[in-house]
Simulated scan of single mutants.
Amino acid sequence: MNLAGHFTEAEWAVLSGGLRLKDSAERDPLRALMARDLLQEEVCEQLLDTLGPIIGSPTRAITASLLGKRLSFLATGACLYAMSVYDKGLLLSLDNTVVEFGHDDGLWTSSFPLLHGQPLTYGVNEREAWREALVQALFAGLLKPLWQTFNKVTGVSRRILWENTAVRVYSLYEKRMAKIDDPVTRERYEADFQWLLTQAEPALFGLDYNPLSHFRRPPTLVDEGQRSIRFRRTCCFYYLATEPAEYCSTCPLLRPGKKCR
């Protein structure tokens, strides 16, 4: 059975729509490669050099940061939404994940294909262990090796790459999931989010710290206190790949009296 067959029609509409999940058979044959292949330095360099001019990036490091943002959105969105909203587990691993890098007319068009998509389930009183296994596979198993390779090949800061990941998770839970009204689902995703922020062990990320907690800067009041923004700690360099320069809404360069690190 294909990936879509393991979800209801409504569930699949969300996952394959805005969250861009799809079966590997539907991948872009010209702009896709296995995640594990990207750990080869020469393959990574070739991809970044090909993608740079397409997205308007002047350096490999900036290209790596912006590609990392896209991959963070695709990986965390599909996996964590399925986990927290549908209570179904997607296995994201280097050998089960396809990296697409389509970008046309100034916009990312890439999706997130999986080779084997049968959701992982859990038994009675096993959800916490199941959740840990999914999160460890996603962060420590998939994203950490990719970010290590990006850092080694380009010199881009691993802090930038991990904050790229963290802000995608914040947005997923605080914006996309906040639209859900069902009280049971809301209770589950709110509990998962708090666990990710405050209790998930650093080992689940393959690090000596929890990046979702570390980059959780308190909101700053702007517009004379009319609204608040949770500014990033690091800059993703998006403004250096746009002409004229555009800034993310949470860019630290826009934080009153501060500069990015």
Rank of each mutant, 00 (worst) to 15 (best):
S65H: 02
L39Q: 07
A78I: 04
I55G: 00
G102R: 07
D37Q: 13
Q118A: 14
E126N: 10
S57P: 04
I55H: 03
F101P: 03
L94Y: 09
L94M: 12
C44I: 03
Q118R: 15
Y122R: 12
V99F: 13
T59K: 06
L80I: 08
N125P: 04
L92N: 04
S111W: 06
L90V: 08
P53K: 05
G123V: 11
W130F: 13
E42V: 02
V99G: 03
E41S: 13
E100Y: 02
L120W: 10
L94I: 08
S111F: 12
T121K: 14
M83A: 06
S65M: 10
L138P: 08
N125D: 15
M83E: 01
A137W: 03
G68P: 05
E42Y: 11
G56A: 04
S65T: 07
V99P: 01
V99R: 08
S84A: 15
K69F: 10
L114T: 00
G77M: 02
A35D: 03
Q40G: 10
L47R: 03
D105L: 11
L91G: 07
Q40E: 14
Q118C: 10
T109Q: 02
Q46V: 00
D49F: 13
D104K: 12
I62S: 01
T63Q: 04
Y81G: 03
D95Y: 09
E126I: 04
V135W: 13
P53L: 10
T59R: 07
E42R: 15
V85Q: 05
T97V: 02
E42G: 01
T109G: 07
L134G: 04
G68M: 04
Q118T: 11
T121I: 15
K69M: 12
L107N: 14
F101N: 05
K88Q: 13
A129K: 15
G89W: 12
R131K: 15
G68N: 01
G117V: 04
N125K: 14
Y122W: 15
L47Q: 06
G68L: 03
V124G: 08
P119R: 12
L38T: 01
A64M: 09
L91I: 12
L33E: 03
I54E: 09
A133L: 14
G102F: 06
V135G: 02
A64R: 01
D95I: 02
V135R: 08
L138M: 04
A137P: 04
I62M: 01
L90H: 11
A137K: 12
G89N: 13
E41Q: 11
V124P: 13
I62W: 08
P53W: 08
K69V: 05
Y122K: 09
S84N: 08
G102Q: 11
L114P: 00
G52M: 09
G56H: 11
E128H: 15
T76R: 07
Y122C: 07
R36L: 06
Q118W: 14
L92A: 00
V98N: 03
S65F: 07
S57K: 10
T97N: 08
N125A: 15
R70A: 00
V99E: 01
L66S: 06
H103V: 02
